[in-house]
């Protein structure tokens, strides 16, 4: 079951297949709940957000567009939007972006090979992030991990919108240069 790709699992979910639904939830529930908990800072709110994110993925599985990113990115984008909406009235996101990547990455339901591969990739990412100027690192973590828009990054970092956009874009360019070049060399 775990060798099935994320895309194939989502396709099964779109057809209403119960086994695919169970496998989809088992595969992604820790990522969805973990992200929701980091953003909301509240266990109960995170559970509500995570449940709705998975239900929304189920409802819109047929509308998934791979051109807009992988299944994980799509699902975590849904989760981020829901979590950010849920805290918007209560309080701003308080977690420091520099603390986010220090949190543990559980191996969850993955097999040992997949867990090792993901751990390796995350380690490369963390090294690459460490080479960025702090303001660029914070901006790209806020946007790429916590899902804030450029405008929200600007408000959070107290900089003009254009500066926030430049920081995100420059950080992405540097990460791409570091990670993709390294990948080609391997």
């Amino acid at each position: 079951m775990w060798s099935v790709s994320d895309e194939a699992l989502l396709a099964g979910l779109a057809t209403g297949d119960r086994d695919a639904a169970a496998a989809f939830v088992a595969r992604f529930q820790r990522r969805v709940f973990g992200l929701a908990r980091v953003i909301t800072g509240d266990e109960r709110a995170a559970e509500d957000v995570a449940q709705e994110a998975l239900l929304r993925a189920w409802r819109h599985a047929a509308a998934y567009d791979p051109r807009r990113g992988s299944v994980v990115t799509w699902l975590l984008t849904i989760t981020r939007n829901l979590a950010i909406d849920s805290i918007r009235v209560r309080r701003p996101t308080t977690i420091d972006p520099d603390d986010v990547l220090a949190l543990p990455l559980a191996t969850g339901e993955r097999g040992p090979a997949e867990a090792a591969e993901l751990a390796h990739e995350i380690e490369r990412l963390r090294v690459a992030l460490g080479t960025l100027p702090p303001e660029q690192r914070r901006a790209v973590v806020l946007a790429g991990v916590l899902g804030l828009s450029a405008r929200e990054v600007a408000e959070r970092e107290d900089v003009p919108l254009g500066t926030a956009k430049t920081r995100i874009r420059t950080a992405m360019l540097r990460l791409r240069a570091l990670l993709v070049t390294e990948e080609r060399a391997e």
């Binding site: 973990g34 992200l35 543990p104 995350i122 992405m172």
Partner: peptide, 12 residues
């Protein structure tokens, strides 16, 4: 790169 950033989110 974006996918890797998303995957780096902590799990729970």
């Amino acid at each position: 790169v974006a996918d890797l950033l998303a995957r780096s989110a902590p799990e729970a």
